[in-house]
């Protein structure tokens, strides 16, 4: 009986080793270990054994069973790995093929830049204000300290519509409209994005363009606050190492007025074609709100002060993206727009 068992064991292990698939293994298991399997068959003959022999044979049979089971488990693992490997080999794909396209478009570069500017000032606690694009002479000029026949009106060649109204030449009228509504409450902190219009059309001017205006009014706002705010803006907008330069300028609705330059984004201030070899790029105009503008808007110019600034979105977009012709921004060539996503 013992020999028989040994033989069986040997045979079973050999069969397991020879099995080429999980199915073969299973068959082998049934053949030897199943209810009607060879081992069971052999053990059935145990009854004929003596009481002394029975436990020994029983133990041997158990040892054989576990040997077979052990081998079975090992072989199962081996074959599973092999099968898996085979499957994985079969399933190889070309990972370099392009991915399934997802429909995606893009926002206009001017929108991107406008949002960029907005976000910086939203973070500083400004709210967004808006106003009409067709304006009265009063809000566009008069209230901003630009009376009839003021020479500075020539700086802004204007489109007129009927009724003495006009297409606003800047976003500044919204300053007055907003202050009129808000006075005498403080503080006023707004930014005004919007379209503006001037009679000009060439490689550096478009008859319609975009500005973002800013206004901050409170009891103790100073010129140094204006500098700090715009300096921070420039660094956020361009890069942390951007330097600013403040030059006296003139706008009828601010005083002192200032033109703000940043260190050239192309050459970092060393001087190149973009900055006409000056190392500086003019990016915005600003100043302390003129007392007269505060007065017409309902604030006491002795009590409150404030600053205002305005920048051209096109100019900043061109600098930021290296666009060399403003007309590209309004041609809407899809091949151009596709570069901004």
């Amino acid at each position: 009986m013992r020999e028989k068992l040994q033989e069986l064991c040997h045979e079973a292990l050999q069969a397991l080793d020879a099995a080429g698939s999980l199915e073969d293994l299973n068959e082998t298991r049934i053949k030897y270990l199943g209810k009607k399997g060879a081992l069971t068959q052999v053990l059935r003959g145990m009854g004929k054994l003596s009481a002394e022999e029975r436990p020994r044979i029983g133990q041997a049979a158990n040892e054989i069973r576990s040997a077979i089971e052990e081998r079975l488990a090992a072989r199962t693992d081996e074959l599973k790995v092999a099968v898996q490997e085979q499957r994985l080999r079969r399933e190889v794909i070309d990972v370099t093929l392009p991915g399934t396209p997802v429909q995606w478009g893009g926002k206009h570069p001017l929108t991107r830049v406008r949002e960029n500017i907005q976000d910086i000032f939203l973070g500083l606690g400004y709210v967004i204000a808006e106003g009409p694009e067709v304006e009265t002479d009063y809000y566009n000029f008069e209230a901003l300290n630009l009376p009839q026949d003021h020479p500075a009106r020539d700086m802004q060649d204007t489109f007129f519509v009927s009724g003495g109204n006009l297409l606003r030449t800047h976003t500044s009228p919204v300053q007055v409209r907003f202050m009129e509504k808000t006075a005498p409450e403080l503080p006023v902190k707004i930014i005004v994005p919007g379209k503006v219009y001037r009679r000009d059309d060439d490689a550096t001017h478009s008859p319609m363009f975009h500005q973002v205006e800013g206004l901050a009014i409170d009891r103790r706002i100073t010129f140094s606050d204006l500098k700090g705010t715009l300096d921070l803006f420039a660094r956020e907008m361009f890069s942390p190492d951007t330097r600013t330069r403040f030059r006296p300028s003139y706008f009828p609705f601010t005083e002192p007025s200032v033109e703000v330059d940043i260190s050239c984004v192309m050459c970092r201030g060393k001087g190149c074609r973009v900055c006409s070899h000056t190392g500086w790029l003019e990016i915005l105009g600003a100043g302390m709100v003129h007392p007269r503008v505060l007065e017409v808007s309902g604030y006491d110019s002795e009590e409150v002060t404030g600053f205002a600034f305005g920048m051209g979105v096109e100019r900043i977009a061109m600098l930021k993206y290296g666009i060399d012709d403003m007309r590209l921004l309004f041609e809407n060539d899809l091949r151009f727009l596709q570069q901004f996503r």
Binding site: R220, T222, P256
Partner: peptide, 25 residues
């Protein structure tokens, strides 16, 4: 006075006062 003093000599500060929430309409 400011332009002769030099704009670039004026210090750089941020406004202080009531803080406000930046919000879009």
């Amino acid at each position: 006075i400011a332009r002769m003093y030099g704009y670039n000599r004026v210090p750089v500060t941020l406004p202080y006062g009531l803080s406000t929430a930046g919000i879009k309409t």
